[in-house]
Amino acid sequence: MKYCSEKDIYNFFAIINDAKINYILLRNIDNELPEKLQLNKDIDLLVNEIDADKFQNLLVKNGWKQKKHPLGHFPFLYGIKPFQFYFKNGIHLDICYQLSCRSLNKGEWFPLDMVIQEDLWKNKIEIADKPWKYRLTYEDEFVHLITRCVFDKKTFNKGYTDRLEELLVLINKETVYHKFEVIFFKFSKIIFEMIEKKEYENIITNYLQYKNY
């Protein structure tokens, strides 16, 4: 198995940190970063839309090339800024400017509730022992992973369930539940109970069949 250059990963984050780009690392499933990121796998970043032009110019200046996003052919609704995809030396950057998820209808992309979007930036966690500078709070990461599994991936794979179980003992459950309510509405209590019971294989089917919104 071939891995991306750890040095290249450190260099990338050093560049955007020095430029004071307002960003958050969205995921690090299976702790792949920085030593075990497989060649041609993505680094998933949320970049504040205010810094979009500055960030894009910085990438081009440092030799990153843009290519068509693999999921960019689905419509982006409610003014959401389309995702972007950059690559260099076998490393791919998957960039979004709002947390979003796909419609279960025709795969359209739409942003999560504004309360969630505002909290992401207000409560982001600054860290000092990793090359990336910012991460989501445990609560926001938990919400993000659940919505990604339900709407985008349409499955709960082991990397995600392992991380969800780690987060479950760290989160403020009341905070998560309130955020679930603007996504899953009256299904929020059910999905939370199913996660606690590790009934991952039934979540999506039950959600699709749920009628009591």
Rank of each mutant, 00 (worst) to 15 (best):
F12D: 00
D152H: 14
M194T: 05
K179T: 04
L77D: 06
L136W: 06
V143Q: 02
K133E: 12
I171V: 15
E32I: 06
I191H: 09
G63E: 15
H144A: 07
F110W: 08
F13S: 01
G63M: 13
D30K: 03
L164Y: 02
K124H: 10
E6T: 15
F151I: 03
I183Y: 09
N48V: 03
I21Y: 00
F187I: 07
N22R: 07
E165C: 07
D113F: 13
L112D: 04
K197G: 09
I29F: 11
V176Q: 00
Y134R: 09
I195N: 10
Y10S: 03
I80E: 11
N212W: 05
D113P: 09
Q117H: 07
I16F: 00
L136Q: 08
N48C: 11
N62R: 03
V115F: 03
Y160Q: 00
L25Q: 13
H92D: 15
L26S: 03
K173W: 02
S188W: 11
D113T: 07
Y207G: 00
N17V: 00
C101M: 14
D18P: 04
I80T: 13
K2G: 10
L164H: 01
A52P: 04
K65I: 15
H178Q: 11
Q84R: 15
Y134D: 05
I43M: 05
L136A: 09
D44P: 00
C4D: 11
I116Q: 06
E126P: 08
H69P: 04
E199P: 08
V169F: 14
I24V: 13
F180A: 11
I203A: 12
Q56H: 12
K67S: 14
P131K: 08
T161V: 09
L136H: 07
I9R: 01
K197C: 10
